[in-house]
């Protein structure tokens, strides 16, 4: 079946999101209930979120999505849901709800890996992407580099060994007292700072490794702050923010471009919440251009968690005939490598 109208649900972490996507590219509705305003005062995302908030919101959001698309349940061709990785309680709300809809409407169910969703955010706006590609997925919970050979065929290249890049932004933002979410706060502060002011380490790891590590960088910033405090040296938050951001971006850009060269691809995809960082976008664009690669990244609203990306990924799974049974379960530690080989 080429024509699809998929209702997709994403509840893996903090956002309760429902979207309706036609043919993997036309977003008929995209509703995200974000709790960022309530989170801000706590300096981090509050997982209360976890199940109860999702449960309170899910039916309302499904209804809103249907209203926005001006559709009724029988108009839909498929139902898709993120089934991992994520918080088990949060995932279960989405999985159980979507299974119920699929069963009641007698329409097929598709289970999607959260990371595959992020990758496919790119296909919502770019249906002309030519494989193979190298894709960097970088968010609060993930920093992963993969090669995509064709739709649904992935080769795992590397991932973070400690903190995700987005998490490093959050933690440094917390240490600098800049608030939450860390990514945008650091980016804003960094605009007034000198990225060369503070000398910070870059973790390149072993020669040829596509893994990442941001824990050492985090410690280096914290040590610097401690030393300044002990020696009574006033700290320049803008300089620290800029130097920190520079260190993260440089490693992300160089590893990604390096992988693209080695894997002999023509296109680089960027995905995930940190893909919204304009310094990362700009620097990766420049390096990609220099090396002759095409760089594709999603619009801002599809970088952070959303359900439209799940609907896009699900469309291509429908084309490949990859459906889930009604025994689909939430898998909190679902590995991308298991998902792609199975």
């Amino acid at each position: 079946m080429d024509k699809t109208i998929i209702l997709a649900v994403e509840t893996s972490c903090d956002e309760t999101a429902v979207a309706i996507v036609k043919d993997g590219k036309e977003v008929l509705a995209d509703v995200v209930a974000s709790q960022i305003s309530t989170h801000q005062k706590f300096g981090g995302v509050v997982p209360e979120v976890a199940s109860r908030k999702h449960l309170e919101l899910i039916n309302i959001i499904i209804e809103e999505a249907l209203n926005k698309a001006n559709l009724k349940i029988p108009d839909l061709t498929h139902f898709a849901v993120t089934y991992g990785p994520g918080l088990v309680g949060a995932l279960l709300v989405g999985v159980a709800t979507t299974k119920a809809m699929s069963f009641a409407a007698e329409k097929p169910l598709i289970g999607v890996h959260h990371i595959e969703g992020h990758v496919y955010a790119n296909f919502l706006t770019h249906s002309d992407i030519e494989f193979p590609v190298v894709c960097l997925i970088v968010s609060g919970g993930h920093t992963t580099l993969i090669k995509i050979l064709e739709h649904g065929k992935y080769e795992f290249l590397g991932q973070t060994r400690d903190d995700a890049a987005g998490e490093a932004f959050d933690k440094i933002s917390r240490a600098l007292g800049l608030g939450y979410p860390g990514g945008p706060k650091i980016e804003l502060k960094a605009k007034e700072g000198n990225p060369k002011a503070v000398n910070l380490p870059r973790a390149w790891l072993e020669e040829g490794s596509y893994d990442f590590s941001f824990s050492g960088l985090k410690s280096a910033v914290l040590n610097y702050l401690n030393q300044c405090e002990m020696k009574n040296i006033p700290i320049n938050k803008a300089d620290i923010a800029a130097s920190f951001q520079e260190a993260v971006v440089e490693v992300l850009v160089e590893k990604t471009v390096g992988a693209a060269v080695k894997e002999k691809v023509k296109t680089i995809l960027l995905a995930g919440g940190v893909a919204a960082n304009s310094v990362l976008r700009t620097r990766l664009s420049l390096r990609a251009e220099e090396k002759g690669f095409r760089l594709v990244y999603p619009p801002m609203k599809y970088c952070t968690d959303n359900a439209a990306m799940i609907g896009a990924a699900a469309h291509y799974k429908v084309l490949r005939g990859e459906f889930a049974g009604l025994n689909l379960n939430a898998v909190p530690n679902l590995k991308f490598s298991d998902y792609t080989s199975g």
Binding site: C13, V45, P47, A50, P85, G86, L87, V88, G140, G141, Q159, T160, R161, D162, D163, A164, G166, E167, D170, K171, S215, P332, N333
Partner: peptide, 13 residues
Amino acid sequence: ENITSPTFTIIHE
């Protein structure tokens, strides 16, 4: 398996 920070996801098993 590699141990990564659970700050964002709360629990890793």
